[in-house]
């Protein structure tokens, strides 16, 4: 079973966001593998361990993204491909999906995994766009998965519950928290990772032009949200405080 896992390198979720000249600054920010993509990579590795085959982890990014890919190799992925090109620096989700789709079109796979969204822009676009570009069926936001006899049965979150989807392979699946418990890369895994293949390809290698991956959306400006001011702390006996709170919620905040 050949599996591709698509990952993005993102800010650590604990990172403090600093805006510099209308853009989010990455100065001094710790970078990690997007947490949802870790579930994707973990699921890919588990399926490989069960069924044999190969896990290829792919990403679009710059020099630093190699660290994220190495991390996935240390977890147990077999090889990695990074699409790196100056023309991708300012692209958007559709541009990334286009580049990834071109890369995957030249590969053999039964399953494509993504994280359900990246914790940076929270757009949740690339998985479905990639599926569309590859003409694959898609099941997003999955929390359970079984693969047998060339068929996947996946449980995905929907509003107010979940649904169970059946689909023939190949398919694109995007992972939600709860799908599995992500392993820590073991020390032998880390030592082996440096001997595994990490290939860097450019747009030219994929026979794509800068126009092919041109952004259709542009981040004009980013700003910090208005700071929330600390309100009042109510003090006194429990009964008094509670009565005070209910009154404030009714009359001042008007929310109940």
């Amino acid at each position: 079973m050949n599996i591709v896992a698509c990952i993005k390198q993102t800010f650590d979720t604990e990172a403090k966001i600093v805006i510099d000249n209308g853009q989010v600054s990455d100065q001094g920010v710790n970078l990690i593998v997007n947490p949802y993509d870790e579930f994707a990579v973990e699921e890919a590795i588990r399926l490989k361990e069960k069924n044999g085959g190969e896990v290829v982890v792919v990403s679009v990014g710059g020099d630093k993204t190699q660290e994220a890919l190495r991390y996935c190799l240390a977890m147990g992925a077999d090889r990695a491909v990074l699409i790196q090109d100056p023309a991708l620096d300012n692209t958007d989700n559709i541009g990334c999906a286009t580049a990834l789709a071109k890369l995957l079109a030249g590969m053999e796979y039964d399953l494509v995994f993504c994280g359900k969204e990246a914790v940076d822009d929270g757009a949740a676009q690339v998985p479905s766009m990639l599926a569309e570009k590859l003409d694959l069926p898609q099941v997003n936001v999955i929390t359970e998965l079984e693969v047998a006899d060339n068929q996947a049965t996946a449980t995905r979150e929907i509003d107010g519950g979940s649904e169970v989807i059946e689909v023939q392979l190949p398919v694109m699946l995007s992972a939600q928290k709860g799908l599995n418990e992500v392993r820590y890369p073991s020390l032998p895994g880390i030592m082996k990772a440096k001997r595994k293949e990490l290939k860097v390809v450019s747009l030219a290698d994929l026979e794509l032009s800068a126009d092919d991956v041109a952004a259709k959306t542009e981040l004009v400006a980013a700003e910090l949200p208005p700071a929330r001011k600390a309100g009042q702390v109510l003090t006194g006996e429990v009964e008094e405080v509670v009565a005070q709170l209910v009154k404030l919620l009714q009359d001042e905040a008007k929310v109940i």
Partner: peptide, 15 residues
């Protein structure tokens, strides 16, 4: 080195 940092980060995360 990259390996040393990766070990440090993994163990930090685990611990």
């Amino acid at each position: 080195s990259d390996d040393e940092r990766m070990v440090q980060e993994m163990v930090r995360d685990f611990a």
